[in-house]
Computed example of a mutant assay.
Amino acid sequence: MFFEDFYPGQTAQFGAYLVTEAEIKEFAGKYDPQFFHLDNEAAKHSLFGGLCASGWHTASMFMRMLIDNLPEEHGSLGSPGINNLRWLHPVYPGYILNVKSTVSECRLTESKPGVGLVCMNYQVLNQDGLIVMSLESKAFFKSKNI
């Protein structure tokens, strides 16, 4: 996908990421060692009512699905950042996550010839359609016309 392949209002849905207890604990042990991500029994008495993934783990699973969705030949050049990252609901073992994307804006950059900026709104949903995370992102893409 290149800059010209995007247009405002365009939507896509992709991914099927199975969240496992082992991966939740492995990620938390390395990066977010809070009891509700590591200890099944203690997590039952938390605000979440059970073991759940770190929000940062959820963001990482989103990123994996996003990259896996790119075709082999693509013009992705990275991102200057994200806005409005929200963890809306806990992510529990056994969830199957997917992503819905909506393009909100496309424009060529003035400072980087041959590069376009694509603004996207993302929702990460579980298998029941519950939105567990949302964010806005901007990404640079090569233009086909250069």
Rank of each mutant, 00 (worst) to 15 (best):
G50Q: 09
P113G: 04
V91N: 10
M61E: 02
L47K: 13
G116A: 03
A59C: 14
S46N: 08
S79W: 08
L77K: 13
E105V: 07
I67F: 13
I96Y: 01
L97I: 09
A43D: 05
M61L: 15
I82L: 13
L97M: 06
A43Y: 02
T102N: 10
L77V: 05
E110C: 00
N84G: 12
D68K: 11
P80E: 11
S60R: 03
S79G: 10
I82Y: 05
E105D: 15
C106D: 07
W87E: 12
V103S: 09
P90T: 03
N98M: 06
E73N: 14
L77M: 15
V103E: 08
A42H: 07
H74L: 01
G75N: 07
F62P: 01
S54N: 08
H45T: 12
L97T: 06
A53T: 02
W56T: 03
L38E: 12
G49Y: 06
K44H: 07
A42I: 05
R64Q: 13
H89F: 08
S76E: 01
A42Y: 04
I67M: 14
L70F: 15
N83T: 06
N84R: 15
L66H: 13
D39K: 12
G114I: 11
P93G: 08
S79Q: 05
E72N: 10
M65Y: 04
L47V: 14
R86M: 07
H45C: 00
H89M: 12
C106N: 03
L97E: 04
L108K: 14
Y92P: 08
L97N: 06
D68Q: 15
I82C: 08
T102C: 11
L38Q: 11
G114L: 00
N84H: 14
M61P: 03
G49M: 08
A59M: 08
D68A: 14
L88K: 15
L47G: 02
T109R: 11
Y95F: 13
A53H: 01
S79H: 08
R86G: 03
E105S: 12
K112H: 06
Y95P: 09
H45G: 07
G50C: 07
T102E: 15
C52M: 09
L38P: 06
G50F: 11
G50P: 01
I67D: 00
G75M: 04
L38W: 03
E105K: 15
A59E: 04
G75Q: 06
N98Q: 13
L97Q: 10
W87A: 09
A42T: 10
I82D: 02
M65T: 09
R107N: 12
P93C: 05
N98R: 14
D68M: 10
G49A: 11
L117V: 12
M63Q: 12
S46E: 07
A43C: 10
H74M: 03
G78S: 10
S79T: 13
S60E: 04
